[in-house]
Structures are given as structure tokens and as C-alpha cells.
Simulated assay, not measured.
Amino acid sequence: MDIYIYCIDSQANDLDLNTLSKTEINRYLNFFFIDDQINYAANQIIKRSVLEKKLGVLAKNIKYVTDKNGKKKVSSFYDFSASRSKGASVFGVSKNRIGVDIEKIIDTNNRYMPLKNAFLCDAETGFINNDRELIINWTIKEAFLKYIGKGLYVEPSSFGFKILNQSKIEFYKGINNFSLECLDYLVFVINRKYCISICFPKKEKKIRIFLLNKNREISIICNTSATNLEILNKSFSFIFNKQ
């Protein structure tokens, strides 16, 4: 399993829009703010360039198929998941199923807390006390929902998670026809600004995290997996090299 994390630089000379499809270029042009343009383009370029190496298909020729729940697929051999937040993005790819999410941890004076009942199950409302905890919890839920391929077609308040310690997460309420005991989670913070959660099967043998474009500080909140974890600092141009 490979995870690619990109945080926006003041310069973005490495971005080559020729990798993108016409639809993606049009969407890129529709963003009002330049940082949003860069973040979107970087995420799409990473996605296409990495999949090009995996599939042996030119990046610009890769075609996605979207299922009834909105999940994009490209091959029966690889699964992928992507997420963007203000100023950063993450892309994960694996031969097994995968779900990733990223959210910016911002100082909001707990202005999101009045909305917590819309996102949290009854058990979670008893121990989530501030926006930081809410945002971290939300990334775990999003990663899980992307993993099972349901997105927001499942009500977020119908299930929940609690981080018990640095190696254990407790699940509240089950989802029908899904075995939860086979899952692992990796939750960490980049540069004290972004929380990233990854949901993956216990059979995953290796996790590589590529920190693109700058050295980044990683703080692990919880890792339930015994899988070997490797963290690598690389330039953005690394994704174009043979891996």
C-alpha cells in the first residue's frame, strides 16, 4: 500500500497539466483560488502518474469507471482512494481495498461542536469535546466509508469510533454484512495542521508513506496495524520516476 501526501508550496513548477484529462483541466480552471487549483491539479497528477506505473497505461489515457455510490475504479487489480483539504491532498493505492481522508485541523473556537449531533453517534457525543477531536474522528469515519465504497450513502451518525490508545480503535454499532474485525486504521497528523486517516485490511503487508515536495513532520495518533510502516521524503517529481 502506497500513500502520497502533497502540501502546497508557494511555487508549483512541477505541475504538468498535460497529464490531466479535458474534464479535469476544465474543473481546474473553474476553481477561483489559485491554491485550490494547485491542490486539485496536484492530486489528479499524482493519481494518474502513480496509476500509470501500476497499470502500464499512459496517464492521460487512464479511464475511470464510477459505480452507483460514486466510487471511482480503474482496475480489478488495484483500488485507490483520494482526498483533498485546504492546502493539502492525499492519494492511496493498494492491491487490496483502501479508504483515505484528510482534513485541516483549524482553530475554530469549537464552532463546529453545535453540529456534532449530525455526524456523531450517541456514544461519540459523550467523549468528543472539541473541534480537533471532532475533525480527527471525522477523518476515520470518512476513510471507513470510502473503504466500504458507500461514501455518505451511509448516515455518519449511525456508527462511530473511539481511539482508545495509540494502537487500538473501538467501533460503535455495526454495519450489516461487513466484517469489521478484519480492518486496520492508521491515523496521523502532518505538520500539526492536517489529520489523515487510512482504513485498510489486516492482510496488508507493507505501508509506504511518500511525503512529496518538502520534509514533513508526522505525528502518529493511532496505528492499529502491525504492518511494516516506511516514511519517505521525496520531491514531487518522484512520482514521474520508475518506482
Rank of each mutant, 00 (worst) to 15 (best):
F127K: 04
V93Q: 03
D16V: 09
F33G: 05
S81W: 09
I190N: 09
S49Q: 13
K193C: 12
K60H: 11
I128K: 06
K242V: 13
S237L: 13
F210I: 03
K202N: 07
L212Q: 01
S179F: 10
R97D: 15
R48Y: 00
A123R: 15
K116W: 05
K141I: 08
P201R: 02
G56W: 03
F210L: 04
Y112N: 13
N213A: 10
I128Y: 02
K54M: 11
F77G: 02
L212A: 07
M113P: 02
G99S: 05
K234S: 07
N61P: 00
Y6R: 07
N223I: 07
F144E: 06
L232G: 10
L212N: 09
D16C: 10
S10G: 06
E181L: 11
I102A: 04
R84F: 02
N39I: 08
R97W: 04
N110C: 06
E181N: 14
S49V: 01
V90C: 03
N18K: 12
V57R: 00
F32L: 12
N233L: 03
N223Y: 03
N69T: 08
F127G: 02
D184W: 05
K141H: 01
S94T: 01
N43A: 15
S157Q: 13
L51D: 00
K71Q: 06
I209R: 02
I175Y: 12
L152H: 04
K193T: 13
I45V: 11
I25D: 01
N30D: 12
Y153R: 10
V50C: 04
S219P: 00
D184S: 12
Q44K: 15
G92K: 02
D184A: 04
C121Q: 11
K72V: 00
V65T: 13
K86V: 13
N165C: 10
N215H: 06
G126D: 15
Y112C: 04
L232N: 09
K205P: 01
N43Y: 10
E170R: 11
N39G: 06
E133H: 04
D2E: 15
L20E: 09
L15A: 02
I98M: 02
N69A: 06
S179K: 14
E124P: 01
A118W: 13
S83N: 01
L58A: 12
E142V: 08
K234T: 05
Q243C: 10
K168H: 12
F159Q: 07
I5F: 09
